[in-house]
Amino acid sequence: MHLPPLPVPARPNPFTRESSRPVFDSPWVRLRVDHVRHRSGGESQYGVVGFRRTACGVLALDDEDRVVLVGQWRYPLERYSWEIVEGGGLEEETPFEAIRRELREEAGLEAAQWEPLAFLHTSNACTDEEAFLFLATGLSAAPGGTDFDDTEELACVREPFAACAARILHGEISDSLTVTAILALQARRAGVSAALDPALAERFFQRPDRDPAPGRARWSNLERP
């Protein structure tokens, strides 16, 4: 299915950035406050959270159409969460390299077939985070099994795909990457056929330090308005 692009205004950005002030930095997240002026005349402080690592996820399906789910305690939410295999890619590794590593480390698996599934901005009102989601099939045990960090306590189950979709609608599965991946594949199976934009599809296999998105590139130029 070939879709024409949705309309974009001739002057889409209404903001002029007067200054940027870094507030917090860590190996995982950073925060800055921008002083911006709207073209209507209003001024405001805009807080932006940046993610140093690239969000990656894989909908890993076995031969019985079961999804590999990982369970863990999500500290910010104060609740337990079941999710697809996910992780943060380093700046010097592609999303594909990162998620292959995460599938081995979290589930002790490797896959024979991989393909890009979906792309999303996880919370675009306040962060620059991007997420690259893959579909993986032809699963087999990875040599060496799982390899958890010393701050991870993970469980792993295989849940029928249809049950995962139902759990999303029920609210039991709420992780944004998992919801997007499951519903994207469900849309495919329902007959929605649309390929990723070629330039976007290439980014699934590009290193962020060499091909940064506009939001991420901004962090290296904070001194410029």
Results as ranks from 00 to 15, higher is better:
F205W: 15
G191C: 02
T54L: 07
P9C: 02
A98P: 03
Q186W: 08
R37Y: 08
N221K: 12
L177D: 05
P214I: 11
G215E: 06
L61D: 07
M1K: 11
L139N: 05
W73G: 01
Y46E: 12
F119I: 10
D211T: 14
D211P: 04
L185R: 05
H121N: 11
W82I: 00
L139R: 02
G50N: 13
D147S: 11
Q186P: 01
R158M: 12
F204R: 11
G215A: 09
V192R: 03
P198V: 04
F15P: 02
L6K: 15
E110N: 11
F24Q: 11
G88C: 10
L185A: 01
L139P: 02
R216K: 12
F132R: 02
A166I: 11
R52G: 14
P214G: 07
G71H: 06
L133R: 03
F132V: 02
D147T: 14
D128S: 13
L109P: 03
E129T: 02
V29T: 13
N124G: 15
S174T: 15
F119E: 09
A112E: 13
G88Q: 02
L117H: 01
A184S: 08
D150Y: 14
D197P: 06
S40F: 00
A163S: 07
Q206L: 13
R167G: 07
C56V: 15
